[in-house]
Design a protein around this nucleic acid. Structure first.
Lengths: 348, 348
DNA sequence: CATTGGCACTCGCGTGCGAGGAGTGCCAGG
DNA sequence: CCTGGCACTCCTCGCACGCGAGTGCCAATG
């Protein structure tokens, strides 16, 4: 039971510190929270907590602030993700459902997350790998320049520009389109490039004039295979609410620039989101646990989302370690769920 | 000739202030720049410049800093847009030409601009209005949900999600696609919706079964017309290099948050870019001349770009009034030109 | 009439010092 | 094991003060 109270003290410290952004002392603690003991007792508890490395004081005779370890314990054992209010749920649902396409869904999600949590929001685009090809459109922009547009089951549209070595006539484009469509429609994106490759290896087809087929179409297909195999755009990440960084306070002023820079790097953001967690779980990475050293002093709250169980992408928020974890986790989870649902509806 | 020297003094003040970010005094001025007069003379000149409202001192007995009016005069009369070095030109060209589609061109341009100028870069998407429709793809995602994909001559791909009141069968989708394509391919985007409307008003077509045509197809076309008329995505703007804001120094710390917020608002950005200037000109708006009061203390350098003379979009940079105008103008102009060229090549 | 050196004056900025206060650690008593 | 009391630490804030950069003005000069 004394152990119990110590945890209550830790919780109180975290909550107060998150609220006030100032080191919290023993006196203020017993006043604001109704733990029925004297400041002296709390001080003893604090001493123990400090020995355990859960809190520390910036300088002698200042209040205590939680350490990363303290936050960790708080998140793991002392907080329950309180569900969003009905009003909030409704707001999220209607806002996200107003989206006109996948791009818009992503944009709105970022905005929503940033607003709900007052932190920087990060949303990865839905993964393509699991979606199937619904239609392929091949358009000749110039004699040697093709635009290939993939329409996927999830409603997402992918485009690739393809440069050729040889000119391509209009009728060749038409046959190409027909053949490619026949080969890949219904395939998963990951399987599409192999399906295409087999197309090239096939013997001459009745529909196409044989002599050009070897020279030009082969090249086109080769390039197409490459283009499809390139899943880099799979990795797109959108950031929002960067303005919330400026509100962070404390010594963040000096780190602001490197942070903003980090947030403009796709690679960094992907590292940040990390592996998507399966299931409805929310992942919290606190301080140095995070993979990005530029973002020291920040925590990351992420969740996986996506239509279907394997097609997983991530989204989340990043903010100072001193953040409202309960609220953030709830918001992230809620938005992830709504995104999954929306993608599911419009999807395969 | 005394007038001449006064302008030289102004120029020197601007240059020094831009370089050092500190109010510049008479003594430092004569030392760093080789104007062969004494500090006292410069002081007299300064007094005159101050009377004219071109410079002012933050407090008595401090150096001078240029006023907005001073910058204005500097930009108008004292600076010539020095062309970019050959190396820089090459860098821009190769970097932008590596783009794989229109999205990528825009993203790369933003990045390029931000890097070249060390300011916040803003690029508006190429205008759609002037491009013609190359192909329309209609895909049924669900019985009552259509995805319409427009492929435009410029290589840009636009998508719209359309919700219907009635179910739509597969063959209806096919006839719809055929009819829509027939109606709008080759049309300009602005004319496309009227072309579509006429389609609906037409008598029953031989290809489609008459009875459903009235009920369902009419609805589809109506919704499509609306979707096409909605040019909101025409207005998309991409921002980059926000990290450069944090470098701005001075009293910007406090304004950082509102600024970041402003930069996340599409509307604000569009106001910022304003009317695209025709021709190769570069527009400079200094301080309060700008249309956005949240961005007080900043200047905006913009230029128009686009394939063809009428299809004009804008791009530019925004930074503190204390910026390297010559360099910024050169960079903005260069990037605008290269973008125009690239869009032209891949375009109609 | 423009230019120049000289000189007194103004202020912002950095530094040092002292009072105030919040918070702690420890100890002895319940 | 909890509590009240007490001495101690150390941060913060306000204030005074000196320094130095920079100015404005004036009288002298070409």
């Amino acid at each position: 039971m004394v152990e119990e109270r110590r945890l209550a003290v830790l919780r109180a410290i975290v909550e107060d510190y998150v609220a006030t952004e100032e080191p919290v002392g023993s006196k203020a603690l017993v006043e604001r929270h109704g733990l029925g003991v004297s400041p002296a007792t709390v001080r003893n508890d604090m001493a123990v907590l400090e020995e355990e490395g859960l809190i520390h004081q910036p300088h002698t005779s200042a209040g205590r602030i939680p350490t990363d370890k303290g936050y960790r314990l708080f998140v793991d054992r002392l907080t329950t993700v309180r569900p969003m209010s009905a009003a909030e749920k409704r707001a999220i649902a209607t806002f996200l459902e107003g989206a006109i396409d996948v791009d818009d869904v992503v944009r709105r999600s970022v905005r929503m997350l940033a607003q709900l949590t007052h932190q920087v929001a990060v949303v990865q685009y839905p993964t393509l790998s699991a979606s199937t090809v619904r239609h392929v459109e091949v358009v000749a922009l110039a004699p040697r320049r093709l635009l290939v547009v993939l329409i996927l089951s999830s409603g997402r549209v992918e485009q690739r520009l393809v440069e050729l070595q040889h000119d391509l006539a209009d009728d060749q484009v038409a046959t190409l389109r027909a053949q490619v469509n026949q080969a890949v429609v219904g395939e998963r994106l990951v399987a599409a490039s192999t399906a295409l490759r087999s197309l090239r290896a096939d013997g001459p087809d009745a529909t196409g004039p044989g002599e050009v087929r070897d020279a030009v179409l082969d090249e086109v297909v080769t390039v197409l295979v490459e283009a499809l195999a390139d899943h880099s755009s799979d990795q797109r990440v959108v950031v929002g609410g960067a303005a919330n960084l400026a509100r962070a306070g404390e010594g963040f002023d000096t780190m602001l620039r490197p942070m903003l820079e980090a947030l403009e790097e796709q690679v960094v953001l992907l590292k940040l989101l990390g592996e998507a967690t399966t299931g409805g779980g929310v992942t919290v990475r606190i301080g140095a646990e995070g993979p990005v050293e530029e973002l020291a002093g920040t925590s990351v709250v992420t969740a996986g989302y996506g239509a279907g169980p394997e097609a997983l992408s991530s989204l989340g928020i990043v903010g100072p370690t001193r953040m409202d974890y309960a609220g953030s986790m709830a918001a992230v989870r809620a938005v992830a769920r709504y995104m999954s649902r929306i993608l599911d509806e419009s999807g395969s």
